[in-house]
Amino acid sequence: MAHEERVQVAVKDGVADVRLSRPEKRNALDPAMFAALVAAGEQLKTDTSVRAVVLAGEGPDFCAGLDFGSFRAMAAGERLSASVQLPPSAGPARATGQRAAFIWAELPVPVIAAVQGNALGGGLQIALGADIRIVAPDATLSVLEIKWGLIPDMTGTQLLPELVGRDVAKELTLTGRRVSGEEAVTLGLATRVDPDPRAAALAMAAEIAGRSPHAVRAAKRLLDLAGRVDLATGFAAEQDEIGALIGSPNQVEAVTAAFEKRTPRFAD
């Protein structure tokens, strides 16, 4: 299977429906899947018609982690992901696995992960790249790498403590224990549960796609700064963003449509 077929992307009404598409292997990560994830993300970065993204897995699982072939290669001292050819990146993520997860954080629009079945190891780290995670109550999430004598190396060590706190991040990483979707929400690892995560994610994406895309993108930029820059920098960025929005065509349209009690028509 060519790497392009590992991830399916369909854009409709401003929502990009992205699917990891290797259900017979529980959407496991092999070099072609890594390449496909990065290619899909890079394609969506430049598509101004996209206002929100849903990231899900085809079949019963989100992503069960690394392909067994990768583990066999590691036993021989090889790292298959290192062989993947990717376009250069100016972002903080440089390694292939990090790029496949962090590309979703780098998208200018919100990304909602819909998690059912297994999201294990690298599969969980890809979900961590999303802005919001909607999970099935009986989904299974795990920072599984310790089982294989490894550590999360797809951005997880840096992003997980932001979500769950340093102590819980250590507990999950050092034990590799599996948590349900319900517990994941309690821990802060997921945003909320829904019996049909993909339908819920698509509904949320459609709602976001109906808002001013300039305001949505500005909100994502600002919220991603929080806790990563000092307050003076964050407060100044907030004022820069609001200054650019007030009186802009889409902001005027938002107000006008609200007063006229009609659906706003925003320009991308």
Rank of each mutant, 00 (worst) to 15 (best):
A136I: 00
Q158E: 14
A75H: 09
E241N: 05
E24T: 13
P31E: 08
S83Q: 14
A114M: 03
A200C: 08
A199H: 02
A209P: 00
V179D: 03
G57H: 00
T155M: 13
A2E: 09
G149T: 13
R178Q: 14
L29K: 00
D153T: 09
L128R: 04
K25E: 14
R262F: 04
A95S: 14
A113N: 03
G41R: 03
E241I: 13
E260I: 02
L144C: 05
L160D: 10
L20K: 02
Q98C: 14
R192G: 03
A2S: 11
T191M: 00
A169Y: 01
A82I: 01
Q43G: 11
T46A: 15
I151C: 07
V179N: 06
A35W: 11
A40R: 02
A105M: 06
W104I: 08
S81W: 14
L29Y: 10
A35L: 10
A209E: 00
P197K: 01
A75V: 07
P137D: 07
P108N: 06
D196V: 02
L55M: 06
V193H: 02
A82S: 15
L231Q: 15
P110N: 08
V229C: 02
A209W: 02
L150Q: 12
E260P: 02
L223D: 09
Q251Y: 12
G77K: 05
T263C: 01
T175R: 11
P92T: 08
V115I: 15
L225D: 04
D17I: 04
Q85D: 15
G14T: 09
R198H: 14
H3L: 03
I208H: 12
H3P: 13
A114R: 01
F71Q: 11
G59L: 05
T186F: 06
R94Y: 04
I242K: 07
E238Y: 10
A139H: 01
L128T: 06
A215K: 02
S83W: 00
A169H: 04
A190K: 05
P249Q: 08
D67K: 06
L55E: 04
S49F: 04
A2K: 11
D268F: 10
R72S: 13
Q8S: 14
P195M: 07
K147N: 15
D167K: 10
D131V: 11
Q98N: 15
P197W: 01
R94F: 11
R211T: 00
A100G: 08
G149R: 04
V164H: 15
F34W: 13
A199R: 15
P264V: 01
R262W: 04
S212H: 01
W104R: 15
K147R: 15
V255P: 00
I242H: 06
A190E: 06
V111N: 03
G122Q: 12
I112E: 07
L174W: 11
A119P: 00
G117D: 01
K25L: 13
V54C: 02
V255M: 08
A39Q: 12
A95F: 09
A254K: 12
A232L: 08
V143R: 09
R262M: 00
V252G: 00
A257W: 06
A35Y: 10
T46W: 05
T263D: 11
L245H: 01
N27D: 07
L128D: 05
R198A: 06
T191D: 00
L107I: 06
D67G: 10
A218D: 09
Q251M: 12
R99Q: 15
L55S: 03
T48Q: 10
G14V: 04
R99Y: 12
A200Y: 04
S180C: 05
F235W: 11
L225T: 03
